[in-house]
Design a binder for these strands. Structure first.
Length: 267
DNA sequence: TAACCTGTTCACGC
DNA sequence: GGCGTGAACAGGTT
């Protein structure tokens, strides 16, 4: 479930493991589906190039290439992962895209469900603009968040999941943010007060920063995170609200499984 | 076993 | 154009 904290963890992983190494090749198991650009065009740019820097906005990762102004782009879909390994090791399962380095190491982009995407761009800003990606959840100001939320007439949960409101929030973070901010997930976004949006802003920063701290290892998150109440596929009815100990309820908002406390989070 | 979940996009209808 | 709904993608999990 790569949301902002996972992608930030991948960014740091590349930063630590795969910078300044000459790329000799890239292979892709299903280029028509997984690559956003022509494979041979990508190969021309990648070969002989190095990763020199990284940049992340929401769930979108950009890796600067040493050749011209090119950046490699990665989106991890619902199940993407990265694994840096030596050529003597076995290629990780589902590493459908592999970058080869001249030092004998490889970077595997693991795409179990083929929902992941890799491409190149010479203008990340324009790329994000075209995709209508808002400011990153860790960077957006309280007033910009209010402005983006205030104009929408949908349930706040759906608005938080919309990457044009704020970038990086996925399903479980949206639930945890709203529980912490004590706002009902179905409350219409344009009915939220400035004070409520401030609570969302604060909860969002806290939850994301905590999750990055544990490198997105959910089991290490504080006990009062609602994430522990998620059944991941089946409602976990035994879980209590971290704040008031009321039974957590599961509903569907915008077609997505949504967990909340009926006592703390009222419309 | 079959249903469900995840992020995103897209098609369709109001 | 805004919004809601649902399908599609693929496979791991339960």
């Amino acid at each position: 479930m790569p949301e902002l904290p996972e992608v930030e963890t991948y960014r740091r992983y590349i930063q630590a493991a795969a910078l300044e190494q000459t790329i000799t090749n890239m292979t892709c198991e299903d280029p028509r589906k997984l690559l956003l650009n022509d494979e041979s065009e990508m190969l021309d740019i990648l070969r002989g190039s190095q990763f020199t820097a990284t940049k992340r906005v929401g769930k979108h990762l950009f890796i600067r290439l040493s050749k011209d102004n090119w950046w490699l782009y990665m989106h991890f879909g619902m199940s993407g992962d990265l694994h840096y390994f030596h050529e003597d090791e076995e290629t990780p399962r589902h590493a459908r895209i592999v970058f080869y380095f001249s030092n004998g190491y490889r970077l595997g982009f693991i795409c179990p469900r083929k929902f992941e995407r890799v491409g190149i761009t010479d203008n990340p800003t324009a790329f994000l603009l075209k995709k209508k990606i808002a400011e990153d959840a860790l960077d957006i100001s309280n007033s910009a968040l209010f402005k983006n939320i205030n104009k929408r007439k949908m349930p706040i949960k759906s608005v938080l999941l919309d990457q044009s409101t704020v970038a990086g929030i996925g399903n479980w973070i949206a639930d945890d943010v709203l529980n912490r901010a004590k706002i009902h997930p179905e409350k219409l976004a344009n009915q939220l007060t400035e004070k409520e949006v401030t609570a969302i802003h604060k909860a969002m920063q806290f939850i994301i920063n905590q999750t990055i701290t544990v490198e997105a290892n959910y089991k290490l998150l504080p006990e009062d995170f609602l994430i522990h109440a998620r059944g991941w596929g089946r409602a976990n009815t035994e879980t209590k609200c971290p704040n008031c100990k009321t039974d957590i309820v599961m509903i569907r908002v915008g077609g997505r499984a949504t967990y909340f406390c009926p006592k703390c989070q009222v419309i």
